[in-house]
Computed example of a mutant assay.
Amino acid sequence: MLEDERRRDAIRAAKLYYLDDHNQSWIAGELGVSRATVSRLLQYAREQGLVEIHIKDPLKDEVTLAEKLRDRYHLAAVKIVATGQATGEEKGALVGQAAAS
């Protein structure tokens, strides 16, 4: 029964922290526990697989793409230029600057 309560509190703390974006001090007041307890509940939630954190690293994709291009075309070096929301002219300027460097 005690484990069920801990699990329930961990889920509630995780929802307040990760979904509702409240800080640990606020959650502590809401749950009537210390901030340290909230920290332990969040750690417990991660350890029990109740919370999974995924990081999307766009730089990793660029490195992978550069490696694939280098290997496929036997290139000495590859430079990936991030153009994001740039317009056509801006993209050309960014690529030109990268090529010049």
Rank of each mutant, 00 (worst) to 15 (best):
L2W: 00
T64C: 06
H22S: 03
A14I: 11
Q24R: 14
A36Y: 06
V81K: 05
A99Y: 00
T64K: 14
A36G: 10
E62C: 13
Y18V: 04
W26Y: 12
K60V: 06
L31H: 04
G96V: 00
V33M: 13
I27C: 01
A100W: 00
R40K: 14
H54T: 08
S34H: 06
L50I: 13
K91H: 05
D20L: 11
N23S: 05
K56I: 01
T64G: 01
D21K: 15
Q24I: 02
L2Q: 12
V95S: 00
R70P: 00
A76K: 14
L50H: 11
G32E: 08
A36Q: 15
V51M: 13
L42S: 07
T37E: 09
I80T: 12
K79W: 01
D21Q: 12
D9L: 15
R72C: 02
R70V: 09
L16D: 06
G96I: 01
A82M: 05
V78Q: 13
E89Y: 09
K68N: 10
E62T: 01
A76M: 04
L59K: 08
N23K: 11
S25A: 11
D21T: 07
L69M: 10
A99G: 10
L59F: 10
R6D: 04
R72D: 01
L42I: 14
P58N: 01
A100V: 00
Q48F: 07
I80F: 01
K60M: 06
R6N: 04
Q48C: 05
I80L: 08
R40V: 14
W26A: 11
R72I: 04
L41N: 04
D71E: 15
L69C: 06
Y73L: 14
G84C: 12
E47R: 14
Y18I: 01
Y44A: 11
Q85C: 08
A77N: 12
A99V: 07
A45E: 08
W26L: 12
A76I: 10
G49R: 09
S39E: 11
R46M: 12
M1K: 10
V38I: 15
Q43G: 09
G96M: 08
S101T: 11
E67T: 12
Q48I: 07
T64L: 15
K56N: 08
E90P: 02
D20G: 00
D9Y: 08
Y17E: 07
V51K: 04
K68G: 03
A99R: 10
E89C: 00
L65V: 07
K79M: 07
R40C: 11
K15L: 10
A99W: 10
E67L: 12
R72V: 02
A10F: 01
L69H: 05
K56A: 02
K15N: 13
H54I: 08
L42P: 02
A100S: 06
D61Q: 02
K68S: 13
A99I: 09
N23I: 02
G88L: 13
Y73R: 09
E89P: 00
A14Q: 07
R6A: 09
L42T: 05
R35C: 03
E67R: 12
S25D: 00
E30W: 03
L59N: 03
L16Q: 03
L42C: 04
H74P: 03
R6E: 13
D9W: 10
R8G: 03
G88A: 10
S25N: 04
R8K: 15
A76V: 09
L41E: 05
E90D: 04
A14P: 08
E3K: 14
A76Y: 06
I27A: 07
A77Q: 11
R6Q: 13
